[in-house]
Design a binder for these strands. Structure first.
Lengths: 225, 225
DNA sequence: GAGATGCTTCGGTTACGGTCGAAGTATGAA
DNA sequence: TTCATACTTCGACCGTAACCGAAGCATCTC
């Protein structure tokens, strides 16, 4: 009966609506303060404080104290991956409803600081198709031509290599049910697109809004066919 | 605030210990009756009945009525994948404890009817290394030499192709944190190993017990290095 | 038919946990 | 120092949901 890890503990943690809202808010990858998260969750600061303590204790969040603020973020990428997979199950259930906001989210959104949604899987597919990315056993690997490509694109690979975090990771997209690029390279690619003013974050949601020239440039940079 | 799919609903579903036990029991891939699951969950049949209805309603389980029995199984592979990813998070927290039963589970266990654990990822790595398996964008793909290999191994590929279910899928292993082979081929490979009497299922847990000659044969069939 | 077995519905109890108000502790600003 | 802001602790309230006993269907066996 007692089998492997206790799955119900962590699921209960995610199961409360307030805590789920907190986690969802942090899926963007940014760190937020306790009060910001309280607003996001729709509860008072006292209540949020309790929830946050539980989430940290449960290993889902990490916390950094800065002056009188406390910044919370997802503990690591695995948490984001697990949350996305739960979203996949959840969206399955109510596959009927597709609000207008949903459409924007499905097209492009931020997932732990990298690009997800339709455009996210398109970029991944395009990179793979041109053998800039090779899908190895565990994780995608950037090929030599791939390294040249992303450098040309404006990403400082040396800086990324210096970081201890894995360069490439794959993440299953809940809306597309296909893989997109995560890891530090995924983050860097999105950051570069923001730098190029292709895209802007919606501060109300996880949606990413590509402007006209951004869309054109994206299609040119990451063609698929 | 209202973002994408409602993650808390499905997480709450998994969060109850009784329901978590039910889901974990079904991770083997076999279908079980309501009373069997009641025993597994450690609750009375009435209580289990309610839980099962909720799980079906929530889209996590599928049910088939057969005479006066009701057989329950996971709704689809995505559920198993999501559960495994949650186990990954849960095992993170209590990384200290490693019971003797845990060791067997980590070595080899059944995950939705396919081989998981250390030996599962070894098989996957071995197949990939010899280019029997190619890791494509979304899912692994069996190469031509790979088709020859598994046929030689004793798997009826024609029968699998005829099924509508995907042949190859990858599944993230919670104990190894690496990929192993899922999909109908994954199931067929394990079935064939049972047929060859390499391995036996433990009916108390998800553990798979390889006997002496099974271990030797496995190492020979799926070398890695 | 009668009896057994598998599953479900109902009602009532119980307990856990989410919530907020009020008060308390840190940190920074004036 | 004094005040404001950010967060936490405490206590009390309340609602939900998990649970089981008892009774009710449905299906199979004899």
């Amino acid at each position: 009966m007692k089998e492997g890890p206790d799955i119900s503990r962590v699921a209960t943690l995610i199961g409360d609506p307030a805590r789920a809202n907190i986690l969802t808010a942090l899926m963007t990858g940014v760190a937020l303060t306790a009060t910001e998260l309280a607003v996001e969750a729709g509860v008072t600061p006292q209540t949020a404080s309790g929830h946050l303590a539980e989430l940290v204790d449960g290993g889902l969040l990490q916390v950094r104290k800065q002056g009188r603020h406390k910044y919370f973020a997802l503990a690591h990428g695995d948490v984001a991956v697990a949350l996305e997979s739960l979203m996949g199950l959840a969206s399955d259930v109510r596959r009927t409803r597709t609000g207008p906001k949903d459409i924007a989210l499905r097209r492009a959104r931020v997932c732990y600081n990298h690009l997800a949604g339709h455009l996210g899987v398109q970029m991944f597919a395009s990179l793979t198709q041109r053998v800039f990315l090779r899908n190895d056993v565990d994780a995608p690997v950037l090929t030599d031509t791939g390294r040249a490509f992303v450098t040309e694109f404006g990403v400082d690979l040396a800086a990324l290599d210096a970081m201890r975090a894995p360069l490439c990771r794959s993440c299953l997209d809940w809306s597309e049910r296909r893989t997109h690029l995560a890891g530090s390279l995924g983050r860097a690619m999105l950051a570069r697109m923001e730098e190029l003013h292709w895209v802007q974050r919606d501060n109300q949601s996880r949606a990413l809004i590509f402007n006209a020239q951004g869309t054109t440039a994206f299609e040119k940079a990451f063609p698929v066919g």
